[in-house]
Design a protein around this nucleic acid. Sequence first.
RNA 1: CGGGAAGUAGCGCAGCUUGGUUAGCGCGCCUGGUUUGGGACCAGGAGGCCGCGGGUUCGAAUCCCGCCUUCCCGACCA
Length: 469
Amino acid sequence: MAQPGVLTPQNEDFPRWYQDVVAKAEMADNGPVRGTMVIRPYGYAIWEHIQSEIDRRIKAAGAENAYFPLFIPESYLSREAEHVEGFSPELAVVTHAGGEQLSEPIVVRPTSETVIGEFMAKWVQSHRDLPLLLNQWANVVRWELRPRMFLRTSEFLWQEGHTAHATFEDAAAYARKIHHDVYNDFIQNVLGVQVYLGIKSKSERFAGATNTMTCEGIMRDGKALQMATSHELGQNFAKAFDIKFQDESGTSAYCYTTSWGASTRLIGGLIMSHGDDNGLVVPPRLAPIQAVVLAVRDEESVNNAAEEISRQLLAAGIRVRTDHGRGSFGRRVTDWEIKGVPIRVEVGPRDLAEGLVTLARRDTGEKVQVRLEEAPARIATMLEEIQESILAGSRSALASRTVDVSSIPEAAEAANEGFARLAWDLVKGEGEATLRTQAITVRCLQRGDGSMPDNEDEAGLVAIVAKSY
RNA sequence: CGGGAAGUAGCGCAGCUUGGUUAGCGCGCCUGGUUUGGGACCAGGAGGCCGCGGGUUCGAAUCCCGCCUUCCCGACCA
């Protein structure tokens, strides 16, 4: 276990614990400009795994990657009324370039619906051009008033998908496909986090959307985090950017568009979903380092054995790191624990003499001795067990942090610990406003059976409310 | 952007109230040695425009003004 003083305990000061983990796991540093961050190699390695897992799923859903410019003419933003209203307070605007004042200010993209809409209009003419399924990996800038590492930085990295469809139904179906097959699948099966899927209430919707779907997770301090969103944009952007096509009969019609995104915020979600007082806990499928082979003593025979085990693990397809650096055993153990490496393989002379190594699980702290020759297979199995166990833990955390209530005051009480679930009819309108005064918002709306509603107006919906990041 | 707290070595802090020689401490870092099965020890050493700019003063880490940044609570948001 980490010694006192390494990290602030979660129950003593959760925000400080979070800052400690970000710093001591070498995830990120603050940048020099307000709200910016430097993502360090270990944090970036995690992001690269997030990217490749999400990217694979996006491509499987049929979308292709492209890249659009960072700079957007300011006039583009104002073409969609709600969109500009929602984003203008947080825009970074370039007014000077090349030593001169620009005739039209340039906006640094806060999101790319507008530029991409402009080009979709050029590229779409016939129903045969549809659906048009695009995605880009990019940085965006939003001048948020209260930055927090990974959760809300002035500049962040994300993926934004943008699609155009011939019909409302096709657009709605695709947005749902992305939400389930890309976001929920990744968050659950790679990130090991159980979330609620639902739609946003009108007041929480994306600026310019007709419907917003969300993945809402619960953090270890009982606050909710929106971990990915998918939007149905109706014909709002199609009309603003003139994205039209001719159908089989030669009739011209506006497209229905969607957009959907997931960002470096997922790393914040990872930290706060699984992390404990010893630091980060990274699920094996996401971990840049799945197993660290630790030479207990800096002796040649031990180091050689550690190298040999590493080679075998690498050959077995496990992402492995060997640590036979100088420094005390305890220190090195603690460092790898803070970084959340799933399995530690301890190689020491006493074990070696008996043909054994010790495997230590990061998630449970449990240690087992195994025969050297069995190690690769045991580790492979154990990685799967850890992945499942982390998800199971997230599942039970979500369940135990969710309370069914039947009034606004009860919901307000329950929201101090996590999610409160109650009939949407009790919340709609005045209740939502009352909760908001206590920093509690409607995180999502679901059907009674937990499934995704078509829209806010369906009868019998339940609201899931909480305090959130 | 409102309320609160804070910026002194890589990190955590003391010093400031009551201005006064070479600004301290712990951890970390470097060198050498002894160590290494849960944050090791000894010895030696390096590292500071005391956040930035202005002011008061013979003299400012210390007092005054402005700005920047960070953290917490809130409003805004991925």
